[in-house]
Amino acid sequence: MTERKKLTLKDIAKELGVSISTASRALKSHPDIAEETIRLVKEYAEKHHYVPNYLAVNFRKNKTFTIGLIVPELVHHFFSTVISGAIDEAKKQGYNILVSQSNDILADELTACQTMLGSSVDGLLISISNETMEGEHLNEFINEGRPIVQFDKITDQVKSPKVIVDDFEGAYQAVKHLIEMGYKKIAHMRGRLEVKNANDRCEGYQKALQDFGYGLNKEWVKNCVLINEKEGYDFAKELMESDNPPDAFFCITDLVAIGVMKYLKDHGFKIPSQVGVVGFSNWKLAEVVSPGLSSVEQHGYDMGKRATRLLIDLIKNHNLDSEETIQIKTKMIVRESSQMKGKNL
């Protein structure tokens, strides 16, 4: 056998004097196989660059052991942590993940879904785009016997399990924190009106103001569409140059909050002694900007793991009827950007 020939499971079994089934189970670290056999098989497979023929195995089992995963953005701290959690859980259970992004555009999401269907994934994990209002393209998976789990951004138009964070409570705690730090005029850079998690965060913002005796100033609530740094900068400029500027900002995401902070620093406002800022998602960037950005932790890695575990259970049990909702608690991460108003750091 030359090194150029593709190594098969049969080759490994013959070389080591074990059965093909023993070699297969050893590669999967099956508990019934002796540790020494597992070691020998894995070392030989690695040395000779063995690549499992998943296509043949899956054909026999009428499964691809592949899960589709569609997110709005790949280059996004929150979604990258979700993907990491999903991949780790899938790998643990013997599944692969096919990842795609919608760019927060419905047309791209439709294309990604068709690609997933064409690739015969066993099930789909999806955080819908900001433009997705209906779910016919998602129901196609269920109609073909392939379960779906929605996470983070979801639609009630699709009857499927969902894994979400408590956006309402996370926003409530963020605004409560700002009030406790002495801020009285808190603006909110919210997300799109048609997006559920954006509405939940806005409701949490409003409830905190109400509970602490602050009225809602609708002029201080700005609707972000692109949810980017430029919108944060532009809305901060509009509000801070108005006749009644706020003294704090609660933002739909950390990226919008970074835009707010950039405007404030460019125009000589001191953070946090004059203006406080809190974001949402707890990007890695929140730790390294100056001053550090307070933010609401969404636990993306845990979300990815739990959503994947739930989907694989549905696949194994052939369950297309579940509408279970798993809600993950958020955590307020306090950094310099929202410390006591009037305190010079």
Results as ranks from 00 to 15, higher is better:
203 E>W: 13
190 R>I: 13
87 I>L: 14
30 H>C: 03
249 F>S: 03
345 L>Q: 14
132 T>R: 02
138 L>A: 06
181 M>N: 12
93 Q>E: 13
306 R>V: 10
236 A>E: 02
37 T>C: 05
19 S>D: 10
265 K>P: 07
113 C>S: 08
105 I>F: 11
218 K>Q: 11
175 V>W: 11
66 T>V: 13
107 A>D: 15
313 D>W: 10
43 E>V: 06
126 I>S: 00
119 S>I: 02
102 S>W: 00
178 L>H: 03
314 L>W: 05
14 K>R: 10
137 H>S: 11
9 L>S: 05
86 A>T: 01
178 L>P: 05
118 G>D: 10
208 A>P: 02
235 F>R: 02
141 F>N: 06
171 A>N: 08
172 Y>K: 01
252 I>S: 03
332 M>E: 07
257 A>W: 02
92 K>E: 15
264 L>C: 12
31 P>L: 09
122 D>Y: 06
203 E>D: 15
145 G>R: 04
271 I>V: 06
44 Y>L: 00
231 E>V: 09
49 H>W: 05
237 K>H: 12
15 E>R: 04
140 E>M: 12
101 Q>G: 03
276 G>C: 08
171 A>V: 08
74 L>V: 15
191 G>N: 02
97 I>N: 05
330 T>Y: 07
21 S>T: 15
114 Q>C: 06
229 E>P: 01
134 E>H: 11
221 V>Y: 06
327 Q>H: 00
69 L>A: 06
157 Q>F: 13
83 I>E: 09
193 L>S: 15
4 R>I: 12
22 T>R: 06
32 D>Y: 13
240 M>W: 07
235 F>E: 04
343 K>Q: 12
267 H>M: 09
60 R>Q: 13
105 I>Q: 11
343 K>M: 12
50 Y>T: 01
246 P>L: 00
212 F>L: 10
242 S>M: 06
325 T>I: 15
134 E>M: 07
247 D>V: 10
173 Q>K: 14
334 V>T: 12
274 Q>S: 04
275 V>Y: 10
244 N>E: 14
335 R>E: 05
100 S>W: 01
34 A>I: 08
64 T>V: 10
162 K>F: 10
11 D>M: 01
99 V>E: 05
266 D>V: 08
195 V>R: 06
54 Y>L: 15
164 I>K: 00
77 H>F: 13
52 P>F: 04
32 D>A: 13
286 A>H: 02
158 V>H: 00
2 T>D: 06
172 Y>E: 01
30 H>L: 03
47 K>F: 00
26 A>I: 03
211 D>H: 10
112 A>I: 05
227 I>Q: 08
212 F>M: 10
345 L>P: 11
248 A>E: 00
218 K>M: 09
263 Y>G: 05
318 H>P: 03
269 F>N: 09
120 S>N: 14
296 V>G: 05
187 A>R: 00
341 K>F: 04
257 A>P: 04
2 T>G: 12
246 P>V: 01
97 I>C: 04
7 L>G: 00
333 I>E: 11
329 K>D: 15
181 M>E: 14
43 E>G: 03
218 K>D: 11
173 Q>T: 11
333 I>D: 02
81 T>A: 08
84 S>V: 12
272 P>Q: 08
309 R>G: 14
141 F>R: 02
200 D>Q: 14
248 A>T: 03
200 D>N: 12
336 E>G: 08
128 I>H: 01
271 I>E: 04
